[in-house]
Nucleic acid binder design. Structure first.
Lengths: 343, 343
DNA sequence: TATATTTATGCAATCGTTTTCGTAAACAAC
DNA sequence: GTTGTTTACGAAAACGATTGCATAAATATA
């Protein structure tokens, strides 16, 4: 049978659709008895409101779009977890999409999300994305956006990030305190914003401890496993680092894999290995891996909270309160070290 | 500025909304010149169709609902990956929700999804779910459903599962071929459908090799880590198994953790450890873990394909072709063993 | 030239809800 | 008993896109 609509209920009960609508949403101007009748009947015929119609009418969907490079990545799935929880408790629903690191797909996805009229967007940019015209072309009134993790450099957008400077600084400092001076750093491509932060944290730790910065210990890698493998091979062969720091979830696994291979082959001594990683089995690896853990869940829930707050603020502004445009927010979350490997 | 609508374009170009609509969707009955004018103008004013309105009118959303216990679980995120890819290429979008193993939340979520008028639903049941009235109460015409992984026993529903009987059978057989006879099995609670399958596979492998079935080597665990920990402790202390097989992703990690602890403490010899797991670092663990790998990505894409095929079949039926009700489908996917540990 | 047929477009209803604006009926105030 | 006020509800117009039906203009046929 087709769905039962508000109109059906109205006819059945001999009243107007508007009355049923009001009764169902508990309007104060409906008589208690009428409300009870409507509710009872609605229950009986298993009425379910049609959110599509409601969204059209109200010009809002109570849906949020989430765009990430890859869902099956511990970090992102934890972030999504956080987003979903916050959204759920605030009565929003979440549509999730992945770009597979493709700019084209990101562009398409954002457009589709806009066409679906999601109320807001939470996005972590693809590896290929260099500018955000494809996102910012939508008016802020039409689509609120919060960036997280992989954010644009742009000053005028809201974002939630991790303090990578601090994270790398801490990891490098730990290395140095444990007597290591030749510390290899594997990180993302050089022109990305976040790469610069990481490099700066690394450099600062060295500087603070009077160690010379050696360009040859730095490797820039993309998303292909072989890039990490090659980097490790080269480092081991030509520079024999006394410790490794890797700066992304995938990168960490890929380099660790090769590192372990080199270790087993006897090409490198057992040295500490630090990774920006959220894998939940870091302590079960052998040799264990030290982790710079990003508060992924929290990043998600904070970003979602920020977005929803913004949406509800936007709503309020229509009530005629004078509008003070809120400044762009940048939330910076702290990483923490998990030491599984001790020298 | 508010969105530009089809009507806006119509007024601007001095034509009717219907003409614009037809031009935009490339109807054959629109003059080439008119179409070009409309398209050019639409482009210019950055027109985006409003999917909400379209969905209301067409009575379909081209959205699929996905409900899983937990997103941040390698298995499920891989499944989602598969779903999303298939859906994307077929022009559907995906809304993802998690139940956190709660029946109440599952019920709420399914209802919300229905109210949103998703065209179909892909669901893996929560740990607390024992019957599916909360799902099947929606008429099949209104909401097509495909179950995957954690499916109901019901014969009348479509599902995609893994051949757990075979998976466990193979793992147990491998153990036996490697000279192990006292094989511990850690699995899900006893009354669940899938548990029975797993037990049967285990029992059959023993039987085929003339080994007695020992009830004491079987442990049933829920989702709490301590349950796995306790199970391992007890097994090690009282039965000294010559091998372990665990039957779920979480369970595998939790038991392996305790197993490793016991191993380090010298309470158990180094014996093979088999897990139903999709973690991508199984080979990097020490001792390495043998995996019964489930084709998670494929499970997702198959389920999505099944669902979309069904939806499009349902559409066709309105064209008046005589309707043959398709029988419920059960697709059974093969697991495969990944041997990282050799005796 | 009158009629039939295409071709290209407009009109208006529809999808299911919400909401603004009325307005009868009931009640209160004087 | 006339004039306000509530109270409770109905009528109708949105929201934006699609589509069946009607029709004017252009072309073809007789």
């Amino acid at each position: 049978m087709a769905d039962v609509t508000i109109k059906d209920i109205a006819t059945a009960l001999g009243m107007a659709a508007s009355t049923v609508s009001r009764a169902l949403r508990g309007s104060y101007e409906i008589n208690e008895k009428t409300r009870a009748r409507v509710e009872e009947y609605a229950q009986k015929v298993n009425y379910r409101r049609n959110t599509v119609a409601q969204s059209l009418r109200e010009k809002r969907t109570r849906a949020l779009g989430v765009v990430v490079p890859e869902i099956s990545n511990n970090f992102f799935s934890e972030v999504i977890n956080g987003i979903e929880d916050e959204a759920f408790t605030r009565g929003y629903q979440v549509m999730i999409f992945q770009t597979h690191e493709s700019f084209e797909r990101e562009k398409q996805t954002v457009q589709q999300l806009y066409e679906r009229r999601v109320d807001g967007l939470l996005i972590s940019l693809s590896g290929q994305t260099t500018d955000i015209e494809h996102i910012s072309r939508y008016k802020k009134d039409d689509l609120s956006v919060i960036y997280f993790d992989r954010v644009p450099e742009d000053e005028n957008v809201d974002k939630v990030v991790v303090d990578s400077f601090e994270g790398v600084y801490q990891a490098a400092t730990w290395m140095i305190q444990n007597g290591k001076r030749k510390i290899a750093l594997l990180t993302s491509p050089p022109d990305i914003y976040i790469t610069k932060k990481r490099l700066a944290g690394y450099a600062k730790a060295l500087e603070d401890n009077g160690i010379d910065y050696d360009e040859k210990l730095i490797k820039y890698c993309g998303f292909e496993p072989w890039e990490a493998h090659d980097a490790i091979k080269d480092l081991v062969k030509n520079h024999q680092p006394e410790g490794f720091i890797t700066c992304a979830d995938r990168l960490t696994i890929d380099s660790y894999e090769e590192f372990k291979k080199q270790l087993t082959a006897g090409n490198t001594p057992l040295v500490p290995f630090f990774g920006f990683t959220n894998i939940n089995v870091a302590h079960l690896l052998d040799p264990p891996i030290n982790a710079i853990v990003q508060p992924a869940y929290e990043m998600g829930s904070r970003a979602a909270k920020l977005l929803i707050d913004k949406l509800e603020y936007n709503d309020r502004k229509h009530l005629g309160n004078r509008r003070t445009v809120p400044l762009p927010v940048e939330e910076k979350l702290k990483t923490h070290l998990v030491i599984n490997f001790t020298t």
